[in-house]
Amino acid sequence: MIDEIFVILYGLAIIAFVAWNIKKGTFVIDPNKLIPSLIIVFVVLAIILVFNGVPFDTAVSVVGKIGAGGIMFAGVVPMIGAAIGLFRFGDEYGPNIFYARNHITGIIDTVASLVMIFGGLLIFRLDLVAVGFFFFVLIPFCGNALANAYYYSYQRRLEK
């Protein structure tokens, strides 16, 4: 029972924090401070577990899995936002809406690859990190190629 309550509170806290960031339009806490603070908190948590008699590898695995779960909870809000955007922006906005949709699919790709990279690092799955990183490198080329193709084929024909 305690597990389920912790999962719900932890997930809701992270989702609410990410939603607050998105609503504000900028970082609520500067990432230069937030990320080192989170790393320090998780290292201290692992040290406390080790001093309480938990084996080192188990302590690191427990802390890493909780962190990876948090990263996945953090990816939920941008994904839902991207889905709402894809349903929201229809063809009635004119031919230039393609670029907004391109941005939205870029968000889907970026969130997916970042979750794969950092989640994989925290659960020690290097194959996941490698695939996520390779995908992350390809995303800008993909978006640029699509926008380029749209501009030189469809939109230029419309303008003529």
């Binding site: 997930g11 899995k65 948090g70």
Partner: peptide
């Protein structure tokens, strides 16, 4: 068990 539960539900929600 707690860590597995957090990871499972995080992954499932995502």
């Amino acid at each position: 068990s707690l860590a597995d539960s957090v990871f499972f539900w995080g992954a499932f929600t995502f």
